[in-house]
Nucleic acid binder design. Structure first.
Length: 439
RNA sequence: GUGGUUGUAGCUCAAUUGGUUAGAGCGCCGGACUGUGGCUCCGGAGGUUGCGGGUUCAAUUCCCGUCAGCCACCCCA
């Protein structure tokens, strides 16, 4: 048994890379539709840009080492610190709002499971410089439109949306103190996965009273806009949800309302979110989150020293690829070549090479048999390669100054003058492409 | 990092309460088929049964360890 890839790392065979390329193409195409520009940064960064934000305990989940210059470095586990640095460095010169996206490969040293590896690619889209609710709608809409571009409908993917400003208002009204908010968020985040008595015990240990604990569970159970509006009716700060509602209205106006579930159990694990938070899930909830993001208005100040409102999301390729395969939405295998050039006898081979290279110069993908196989075997290979046409060159054809152009799907063929091969291919029956979708 | 569970050709899976040479389909290579492909038929290559140890006359099968996958926890930047 030869060595294999490290746990959590992937070898991409051609058919798997095909899916990855499909995901990358789609990510770029949809981001472009929203006016986002692509950027990138180094995959290796100083360790402290990650510990500064998340504390030293994060080191256990990073790939770190000391480089030959004595620097503590880490393979990037996330893009946000790099993004914050880049934005901060040129903040004054960049026209706001900034719409940037990237597709970094990220690394984290953790026990892998389905949908969670030690290495993955992640679409990061961030919008900086706009505090208003339309920015939130733009970012959520972009995430949803990526799903739609893959052919995923509102029956297959759900966007669960909440807002930390709303959570804070409701929890405060229920008697949760400012200092206890973090514990309350954590309990809400786990509400669907953990048992209520355990969570209640943890909250109790954090100093919450019975009424406040009950309030936390009540908030975590809010689903849908009417339920949220009802809860807010009893709240002293009913206006806390105004931005969220404006964002939801905007998504409705875009025609994407069918994808949205107001779901107050969504808080996101990160401490730095300040407003809208959202996650995308497959409708059956059999997989991990496809995408997560939200508004982080204080983070650029903390990381980069520029005080700009911002929000964004990250969408990994692993869960997405699982979902596309489950739903039969992975692209059909592409044809390797458009045309296969077959030589009947060894004497025909130089002529086949000349024709093949003419086609290649003209931008047509073509292949010929390297091993002098019989014609039948060559055509078999042409078929396996998905070629739409074959060009057959034999002594008889050459004697007439011709080649045979065969339509492999239609099983028809016709002689073509040797010097008219290119024009015949261009004007004849369309070269078959098996690719569908993004071709 | 903790606990549970599963590991048999490239892939999907078989192998009678432990029994002799570990099989099949798909895929791959070749032949039937040296100027016409997808089908069919025939043949071939490909396995230290994840790895190591133990029990036994005998281990793919039972036990232990280890590695890897999966599930839950942790974490989810």
């Amino acid at each position: 048994m030869p060595s294999q890839a490290l746990p959590g790392f992937r070898d991409f065979y051609p058919d798997e890379l095909e899916l990855r390329a499909h995901i990358f193409r789609t990510w770029r195409e949809v981001a472009r539709r929203y006016g986002f520009e692509e950027y990138d940064g180094p995959p290796l960064e100083p360790l402290d840009i990650y510990t500064a934000k998340s504390g030293a305990e994060i080191v256990g989940q990073l790939y770190t080492f000391t480089d030959k210059g004595g620097r503590e470095v880490a393979l990037r586990p996330e893009m946000t610190p790099t993004f914050a640095r880049m934005v901060a460095a040129r903040a004054n010169g960049l026209r706001k709002p900034i719409r940037w996206f990237s597709m970094p490969q990220l690394f984290r040293y953790e026990r892998q499971q389905r949908g969670r590896l030690r290495e993955h690619f992640q679409l990061n889209c961030d919008l900086v410089g706009e505090p208003g609710p339309l920015a939130d709608a733009e970012v959520i809409a972009l995430a949803i439109d990526v799903m739609r571009a893959f052919g995923l409908t509102e029956h297959e993917v759900r966007a669960r949306v909440s807002d930390r400003r709303v959570l804070r208002s409701l929890l405060t009204a229920a008697g949760v103190s400012e200092a206890q908010l973090g514990d309350a968020y954590q309990a809400i985040d786990k509400a669907e996965r953990s048992r209520a008595p355990e969570l209640a015990a943890q909250l109790h240990a954090a100093g919450l009273g019975d009424a406040a604990i009950e309030g936390v569970f009540a908030v975590a159970a809010i689903r849908g806009r009417p339920a949220l509006e009802a809860a807010l009716a009893d709240s002293p700060d009913g206006g806390a949800a105004a931005p969220l509602f404006a964002t939801l209205d905007a998504l409705d106006a875009m025609g994407l309302g069918a994808y949205i579930d107001v779901d107050l159990s969504i808080v996101r694990g990160l401490a730095y979110y300040t407003g809208t938070v959202f996650e995308l899930f497959d409708a059956g909830r059999t997989l991990r989150a496809i995408c997560g993001g939200g508004r982080y208005d204080g983070l650029l100040l903390a990381l980069g020293g520029v005080d700009l409102p911002a929000l964004g999301f990250g969408m990994g390729d692993v869960v997405l690829a699982e979902l596309l395969k489950d739903r039969g939405l992975a692209p059909a295998p592409a044809a390797n070549v458009d045309v296969f050039v077959a030589a009947v006898t060894p004497e025909d081979v130089p002529h086949a090479l000349a024709v093949a290279h003419e086609l290649r110069d003209a931008g047509i993908a073509c292949e010929f048999a390297l091993g002098g196989q019989p014609l039948g075997r060559q055509l078999k290979l042409a078929d396996a390669r998905g070629a739409g046409r074959a060009i057959v060159i034999g002594p008889d054809d050459r004697a007439r100054g011709e080649v045979v152009v065969r339509d492999l799907a239609g099983k028809t063929q016709a002689p073509v003058r040797r010097d008219a091969v290119l024009t015949a291919l261009a004007s004849g029956a369309a070269v078959a492409h098996t690719r569908s979708g993004d071709g």
